[in-house]
Amino acid sequence: MSENKKWMPRWFYQLASPRWSYEIMGKLLPGFAVAATLLLIGGIIWALAFAPEDYQQGNSFRIIYIHVPSAILAQSCYMLMAVAGAIGLIWKMKVADMVAKSCAPIGASIAILALATGAIWGKPTWGSWWVWDARLTSMLILLFLYLGVIALHSAIESEATAAQSSAVLALVGLVNIPIIKYSVDWWNTLHQPATFTLTERPAMPAEMWVPLLIMVIGFYCFFAVSLMMRTRNEILHRERRSSWVRELIEKR
C-alpha cells in the first residue's frame, strides 16, 4: 500500500478506518442536514407557489419538481452503491461495504418515489395511471435491481460474504443498466411511436429550471444525510467489539 500513497489522496486511506469515517460523518451531518432542509423547503415553496404553470400541462407540471430529482437520485444512488461495492471488493475496505449496504434501501425508496410520481403524473397527462413509457419501465427495472441486491444481502448471514456477493451483483447490474436502458428505449419506440414524453421538453424558462436545480441539489443533500446516518449505524454495529465504540458507549 505504501507505494500507492503517492497517487492516492490521504483521505482515501483514512476512509478505510471506521472510526475516522464515523467521526468525519458526524461532523459533516449537521451541515448537510441544514442544507437539505433549507434547499428542500425553499425549493418546494418555489415549485408549488411561484414557478409559472406549464402552457400544455397546467399545474400538473409541478410534479416534475419531485419526479425528476428522484429519478436522477435513484440512478446516481445505484452507481454509488456499485462503485462502493467495487471499492469494498478490491481494497477490502469495510466502510465501503457499509456505504454500499446503506445505499440499497434509500435508493429503492427513491426509485419507488420516482415511479409513484411518474404514475400520478401519467393520469392527467396520458389519462391512465400507468403507461409503459420507456423511462418509467427503466425505473421499474432499476427498482427490481435494487430489490435483488437487498434480497441477496438479507439472505446471506455472514456480513462479509453478504457484502461481497451484493457488490458483485450490483456491479453486474451496473454493466447491464445501459443495455437495459437501450433495449427498453428501443422497445418503447417500436410499440408506441411519438408518445408525449414526461421530461424531454424544449427550452425550459429559468423560472422553471432554477427551482428544479434547487430541488435536485436538495435531494442529493437529503440523500447524503440519510446515507451518513445509516452508515454510522452500520459502523457502530459492525465495530461493536472495538475499544473506541466501547468508550463511546460508556461516555454516554
Binding site: 427495472i141 427490481f144 435491481l145 430489490l147 435483488g148 434480497a151 441477496l152 451483483l169 453486474v172 447490474g173 447491464n176 443495455i179 437495459i180 437501450y182 433495449s183 427498453v184 428501443w186 422497445w187
Partner: peptide, 12 residues
C-alpha cells in the same frame, strides 16, 4: 429475483 431483471434485454 436476482436474474430476471437482467434477462429483459434478451427477451426484448
Amino acid at each position: 429475483l436476482l436474474v430476471l431483471p437482467l434477462y429483459i434485454p434478451v427477451l426484448i
